[in-house]
């Protein structure tokens, strides 16, 4: 009988010495990209999907409004509400909110303020139209409907 058994000298182990380094690299990536949220969102947020998305160029010019059903429906009811920063505001409060946000910007940037509205996709248009109306009142005319990418 012939000998079939071959003795291979190469080791079968994968060297794992570099594993911690790889993990650390990933770790740093996520640490850098992470943005810890400043305000907790108290409304339901399932952002609609769209294809024709554009990126906002200057982040400091952007203020956010969240619109949707409150997550705590027992306390706040089931009607869609507007959240700015950390609190719910009424439609009339938008004017004050935008003025405050404008106050944080330099004089020549005040008209450039962009309001990004993150609206839950189950919301009706009425509340969105009201927000737009108020934005026009205070001459904050740049608007973005936040949306996520739809793959098609």
């Amino acid at each position: 009988m012939a000998k079939f058994k071959k003795k291979s000298k190469t080791s079968q182990d994968i060297p794992t010495a570099a594993l911690p380094d790889i993990i650390f690299m990933l770790l740093f990536f996520f640490m850098v990209t992470t943005v810890l949220r400043e305000s907790t969102i108290m409304v339901k947020q399932s952002i609609p999907k769209a294809t024709q998305l554009r990126k906002l160029e200057q982040k400091k010019l952007v203020s956010y409004l969240y619109v949707g059903k409150p997550t705590d429906t027992k306390k706040f009811g089931a009607e869609p509400k507007i959240q700015a920063n950390d609190a719910f505001i009424e439609i009339e409060g938008i004017i004050q909110f935008i003025e405050e946000e404008k106050g944080k910007l330099a004089e020549n940037e005040k008209d450039q303020i962009t309001i990004s509205i993150k609206v839950d996709d189950e919301t009706k248009m009425g509340i969105v139209a009201d927000i737009q109306e108020k934005m026009r009142d205070v001459n904050a005319r740049k608007l973005m409907y936040a949306a996520s990418r739809r793959a098609d």
Binding site: L56, S116, R136, R141, M144, Y145, A147
Partner: peptide, 12 residues
């Protein structure tokens, strides 16, 4: 995800 549909509203 600062992406979305941009729009400029007409003046009041």
């Amino acid at each position: 995800t600062d992406k979305g549909l941009t729009l400029t509203l007409p003046p009041k």
